[in-house]
Design a binder for these strands. Structure first.
Length: 253
DNA sequence: AATGTTCGCAACCGCTTCCGG
DNA sequence: GCCGGAAGCGGTTGCGAACAT
């Protein structure tokens, strides 16, 4: 029983001609309706593939070129905060795509962290490394980080729930409740070495600086924005402490 | 110079969530 | 409230380029 219609969909690398067709179709009709767009565009591709190609390559606002040091730093911070929510991370890096960040993480940053003795999944020191040793003897006069609770280890990345599950989301801000436990710790550790949560290792407990336990998107969003620079971050928490009194309330934002 | 290995990027796949009927 | 289609996300794979031997 041969299936009649439906010409086989093309797969593999995109040609410049296909790119052109797709770009023109999106320009004409806008993003969305990915299911039917390829047919209207005259493309033998599935909608998924078109969407991916557009999002990761053809979109006009995509920034090409190497990831800058500050971007890298921000990715590490955000990853510690959010885990593998690449789309969420990408949302904070204008012009960068989730796929690009994911690839960069897997091929560069995770190795970099391992080299430094940091587990790229948990951002905790790997056993038997200098970082771990440092964590073990963390002096009491270490900065804020030392007093912070450990972020919930991400070893249990909601891996299989992957996709929408975690994000369950779209590119917007989401999942806030799921991460509230770790926000404060992550962030303040971030004030030190962005790569390492050394001081936090094995510490638990009391911490009343007031994490941005936000329950609305804009507050969380502004919190994420504040991660862009340490200065902004510090002032963010300054403001938070002042306005919220370090309670579980949200950051006055 | 040729061959093998590693690396990085682009694309695909499967799953989950969202949304309209 | 349920169901099905569409969209979005993260994990994984494949392939070409770069590098090492």
């Amino acid at each position: 029983m041969t299936r009649a219609a439906a010409p086989a969909l093309k797969r593999g690398a995109w040609t410049p001609e296909e790119d052109d067709l797709l770009a023109r179709a999106v320009a004409r009709e806008g993003e969305g309706r990915w299911r039917t767009l390829p047919r209207r565009a005259g493309l033998l591709r599935c909608g998924k593939s078109c969407r991916l190609r557009w999002m990761n390559y053809l979109r006009p606002d995509i920034k090409r070129g190497p990831i800058a040091a500050d971007e890298e730093d921000l990715i590490v911070r955000l990853h510690r905060l959010l885990g593998n929510r690449w789309s969420l991370i990408a949302g904070r890096l204008p012009g960068r795509t989730d796929n690009e960040i994911k690839n960069y993480w897997n091929s560069h940053l995770s190795k970099k962290l391992i080299k430094r003795g940091i587990d790229p999944r948990t951002h905790m020191p790997l056993p038997g490394t200098a970082a771990a040793a440092a964590a073990a003897v963390a002096p009491d006069n270490t900065p804020a980080a030392a007093k912070l609770p450990v972020a919930p280890p991400q070893t249990e990345q909601p891996s299989s729930s992957s996709g929408g599950g975690v994000g369950g989301d779209d590119g917007g801000s989401d999942d806030i409740p799921a991460m509230t436990g770790g926000v404060g710790a992550d962030v303040f550790e971030g004030l030190g070495d962005p790569f390492c949560a050394v001081d936090a290792a094995g510490r638990g407990g009391g911490f009343d600086i007031g994490c941005p336990l936000v329950d609305d998107d804009s507050a969380f969003s502004s919190f994420l924005d504040s991660l862009v620079s340490e200065t902004q971050l510090a002032s963010y928490f300054d403001g938070f402490k002042n306005t919220a009194g370090g309670d579980d309330d949200q950051a006055g934002a």
